[in-house]
C-alpha cells in the first residue's frame, strides 16, 4: 500500500509538471494558433541562468524568478522576430519554426554551459515519512506550487477582466477586433504567461532530472500527449490530461512493464483520440459553406 502511495504521489508530481507545461502550451495555442515546440528549450535557457546565479550564491527563489524572466523575454523575442513575420493562421509553419528555434536554443545552451549533466538545486530539501515510505518534500512542493499556479491562472481567466479579454480573443479574433481589443497585446501577454508557466514547471522538474540541454524534451512530449488527450483548446483538459499521463506513466512502469511504458502511454492516448477525436474536453468544430 505504501508503495502504491509512493507511486501515486510521484506520478501526480510528474503529472503536475506536465499539466503546468501543457497549460502554457494551451494558453499560447489558443491565443495565437502556435504550437510552441520551443517552449521547453527556452525554459532550459532560463534554468541554466538560474543555476549560474545559484552557483554565485543567489537564493534559489530569486533564481527561479530569473528563470521565469529570462524564459519570458526569450520567448517574446522569438515571437516578434520569427513567428509574427509569418503572418496569421500559419499553423504548420509556426510549429516548424519553433522546432528550428528549439534546435538552436538547445545547441546554444550546450555550447555555453556544456553538455555535462548538472545538478539543479531542490527548492526545498527533506522528506516526510508516512507508514514506512518517505515522500520528498520537493514532490509535495511541486504539487502545491503547480496547484497554486493553476489556481492563479484559473483566477486570472475567470475572475479578471484581462482574463475575460484573453478568453474573448481566443474565442473569436474577428469579434475581438470589432469590440476593439488589441489582439497583439493579448497575444504577447499570453506568450509571456505560457512561457512563465513553462519556466516554473521546468524549475520544479529539473531538481529531479538534473540539467542537460535536452532535459526538458521528455516532459514536453508528455505534456503534448496530455494536451492532446485533454483537448488542444481546453485549459482544464491540459491539466487533467497532464495528470493522467503522469500517473498512468508511473503506474505502467511499476505494474505493467518498465520497458513498454511509452508504448502504453501513447497507445492509450491514441485510443482515447480514436474514440473522441477532439480530446476529452475539446470542442468539435463544424464547418459550414
Amino acid at each position: 500500500m505504501s508503495q502504491f502511495l509512493l507511486v501515486l504521489v510521484s506520478g501526480v508530481a510528474s503529472g503536475a509538471v506536465y499539466g503546468l507545461m501543457g497549460l502554457g502550451l494551451v494558453i499560447i495555442y489558443r491565443a495565437t494558433d502556435v504550437v510552441n515546440f520551443a517552449m521547453a528549450s527556452l525554459a532550459t535557457l532560463g534554468l541554466y541562468v538560474a543555476l549560474s546565479l545559484h552557483d554565485r550564491g543567489v537564493a534559489t527563489l530569486l533564481g527561479v524568478l530569473a528563470a521565469v524572466v529570462i524564459t519570458v523575454t526569450a520567448g517574446l523575442v522569438v515571437r516578434e522576430a520569427v513567428i509574427r513575420p509569418l503572418g496569421q493562421g500559419q499553423l504548420f509553419s509556426a510549429l516548424v519554426v519553433t522546432m528550428g528555434v528549439s534546435l538552436i536554443a538547445e545547441s546554444v545552451a550546450g555550447s555555453i554551459w556544456g553538455n555535462q549533466p548538472k545538478s539543479f538545486p531542490n527548492l526545498i530539501d527533506g522528506s516526510v515519512r508516512w507508514s514506512g515510505a518517505a515522500l520528498p518534500v520537493q514532490s509535495l512542493l511541486t504539487i502545491a506550487v503547480a496547484a497554486v499556479a493553476m489556481a492563479l491562472v484559473g483566477y486570472l481567466f475567470t475572475r479578471t477582466t484581462l482574463g475575460s479579454a484573453m478568453r474573448a480573443a481566443a474565442e473569436s479574433a474577428d469579434t475581438a477586433r470589432v469590440v476593439g481589443l488589441s489582439s497583439q497585446r493579448l497575444a504577447r501577454i499570453s506568450w509571456a504567461l505560457g512561457l512563465g508557466l513553462a519556466a516554473l514547471s521546468a524549475c520544479l522538474y529539473a531538481p529531479r532530472s538534473g540539467l542537460v540541454p535536452t532535459a526538458l524534451v521528455a516532459p514536453l512530449f508528455r505534456a503534448f500527449a496530455g494536451i492532446f488527450l485533454g483537448g488542444l483548446t481546453s485549459m482544464y483538459g491540459a491539466v487533467v490530461g497532464g495528470l493522467t499521463i503522469g500517473v498512468l506513466d508511473n503506474m505502467a512502469a511499476n505494474y505493467i512493464s518498465a520497458s513498454f511504458r511509452d508504448t502504453f502511454v501513447f497507445s492509450f492516448t491514441v485510443l482515447v483520440l480514436l474514440i473522441r477525436p477532439q480530446g476529452m474536453f475539446g470542442t468539435r468544430t463544424f464547418q459550414r459553406v
Binding site: 520569427v82 509553419s93 516548424v96 522546432m99 528550428g100 528555434v101 538552436i104
Partner: peptide, 13 residues
C-alpha cells in the same frame, strides 16, 4: 543543429 535551425527558419520566413 544550429545550421539546421537557421535553415528551417530562414526558408519558412
Amino acid at each position: 543543429p544550429v545550421v539546421q535551425g537557421i535553415v528551417l527558419i530562414a526558408v519558412l520566413l
